[in-house]
Design a protein around this nucleic acid. Sequence first.
DNA 1: TGTCTTTGGTCAGTCTCTCTGATTAAAGTA
DNA 2: TACTTTAATCAGAGAGACTGACCAAAGACA
Lengths: 139, 139
Amino acid sequence: MNIGLLLFIPNRDVENRVLAAVNAAGFEVTQAQARVLMRVDPDGTRLTVLAESAQVTKQTAGFLVDQLEKAGYVERVPDPADGRARLVKVTEKAKEAVPVANAELARIEAEWEQHIGKRRMAQLREALEMLGDITDPYR
Amino acid sequence: MNIGLLLFIPNRDVENRVLAAVNAAGFEVTQAQARVLMRVDPDGTRLTVLAESAQVTKQTAGFLVDQLEKAGYVERVPDPADGRARLVKVTEKAKEAVPVANAELARIEAEWEQHIGKRRMAQLREALEMLGDITDPYR
DNA sequence: TGTCTTTGGTCAGTCTCTCTGATTAAAGTA
DNA sequence: TACTTTAATCAGAGAGACTGACCAAAGACA
């Protein structure tokens, strides 16, 4: 079984479940919006940086931030350090979604640990974190 | 770091690289088309089954198969066992892409093994295969 | 200082993928 | 035979992603 598919299947499961949990709690965001939202730094992040880290064009990132802004999950404030730039910041409303997402993630991890064991779960994490070094173009 | 993102990042890397390799070899398929094509059984597969295993609606699967058919990568033949159904089969042309994809996958795995070591790579595979039991809705 | 290049972001247009809803036709069932 | 289910398609719409063109501020430098 190919390594891409092996990674894809559990990843899809996590994305689906976390999004479903967040939606069920009343936060109406899409997967694409969530992927951008997730990458907004507590101190605010420039659009260019968001685009780069989410691996989409700045037009796409801008489109998604527009929607998140309309829905009240982020706001754009001028960047004091650069007159051209604006910082995307998460609002209080969006911050309330974080514990919902984290709770579902914890639930998933617990189920997985139940199925494959604590030791293997730790090994999985370790291997994936190391792979991030060579597969995360943003890092 | 959340387990979803940890899975997502290397998965994206694999998908990008394999697709780029296949494209570079002259096979013009998209990621979505590839995801369907990958799931066609050597003996042929019904559209409904493809849709289910790729986790899309049958309309979407049908749309992608249409494109793959136009490009000459699959053909639809009547299903001898069911007058309503047709079997999607891969053509010789598509079969030629398989070794290209496999070669890139092997290259990726070798690089990863180089970075995290043989032992951790085996552990990663084992954990992911076990997780498939509980996260692959098709299995 | 004034020009040139780079960088952050937007506008316009298009394409691909995905969905929902409705429909057709063959199979299976009572 | 009539009813229900299943395999697939048609029609229409929305989301998300891209390329290309553009503007304005910042940085570099002669």
